[in-house]
């Protein structure tokens, strides 16, 4: 993590949200993803190991079944064989894990991502309209600039995208920034990123859109702020 910009949100969740920060949604994703991987692996390993151990430990050595299996065609008694307590303990534990994890992502990830950084907190912001078409991306800037297949954004600035489509559904995805958003003809979907590093990245289409879907990509250039200002003045292209 690099910089921390607190997001103003009413209520008692400020702390949590400030912790997550807005330094690019990438970091929110990165933290949550890591936490899920760790928790998921732990739970998975424990449960699977337990399953296999029980299967092995209780295996039939002689290939015979139990001597006291139920009668043929029995109506089973409604209550099981006294494992109810165990069942509900493990169920309760798993429920707590799942609800905690997903609940945490809601407050630490979802809410800040939905609200985005406010204008008071982040001085610079850029609005770009992204339009998908078969098969490419068009970017429209506030100053009337238009660019095909190449998105240029300033570093250290919040970039807000209005994503839409000319023809079929596409999905505007920025893997480096860990964010995807559907591009739907006739409606606008919003998303934002907060680039922290200059460089060249790729935007891809994440929704099947026709024969050129595989090749439907765009270049994303994050340039230093001052360079971008020049570019915006029409010194490039």
């Amino acid at each position: 993590m690099t910089t921390q910009v607190p997001v103003p949100v009413a209520g008692s969740w400020d702390g949590l949200i400030a912790q997550a920060g807005v330094d690019g949604t990438s970091d929110i994703f990165g933290q949550l993803f890591l936490a899920f991987i760790v928790a998921g692996t732990l739970v998975g390993v424990v449960v699977i190991a337990y399953t296999l151990q029980k299967a092995y430990k209780n295996r039939s050595e002689d290939g015979e079944t139990k001597s006291d299996t139920p009668d043929m065609g029995e109506i089973p008694p409604l209550e099981g064989g006294g494992k109810g307590k165990k069942l509900f303990l493990s169920f309760g534990a798993s429920a707590v894990i799942v609800i905690t994890l997903v609940g945490w992502t809601y407050f630490a990830g979802f809410i800040p991502m939905e609200q985005g950084p406010s204008e008071q907190q982040v001085e610079d912001q850029l609005d770009v309209t992204v339009t998908g078409f078969q098969f490419g991306w068009r970017f429209n800037y506030p100053d009337g600039e238009e660019s095909l297949g190449r998105l240029t954004v300033p570093n250290d600035t919040v970039v807000r995208f209005d994503v839409t489509s000319d023809d079929v559904m596409h999905n505007f995805g920025l893997p480096y920034f860990d964010r995807r958003s559907d591009a739907i003809p006739g409606q606008i979907t919003e998303m934002w990123i907060y680039p922290q590093e200059t460089g060249t990245y790729t935007a891809k289409c994440y929704e099947l859109c026709g024969s050129g879907h595989s090749q439907m990509a765009a270049q994303v250039e994050v340039v230093p702020k001052n360079e971008f200002d020049n570019w915006g003045n029409g010194t490039e292209q």
């Binding site: 949604t25 929110i28 994703f29 949550l32 993803f33 899920f36 998921g40 739970v43 998975g44 449960v47 699977i48 399953t51 296999l52 799942v98 994890l101 997903v102 992502t105 809601y106 990830g109 979802f110 991502m113 999905n171 995805g173 893997p175 860990d178 964010r179 995807r180 958003s181 998303m191 994440y206 929704e207």
Partner: peptide, 26 residues
């Protein structure tokens, strides 16, 4: 059971919206 446990756990990822924002369609 084993496969379903793996499938179930990886599904919880997708139920968390911030993760879904970067996992859907992939």
């Amino acid at each position: 059971l084993v496969l379903f446990i793996i499938g179930g756990i990886t599904g919880v990822f997708l139920g968390a919206i911030p993760l879904d924002y970067n996992l859907r369609g992939g």
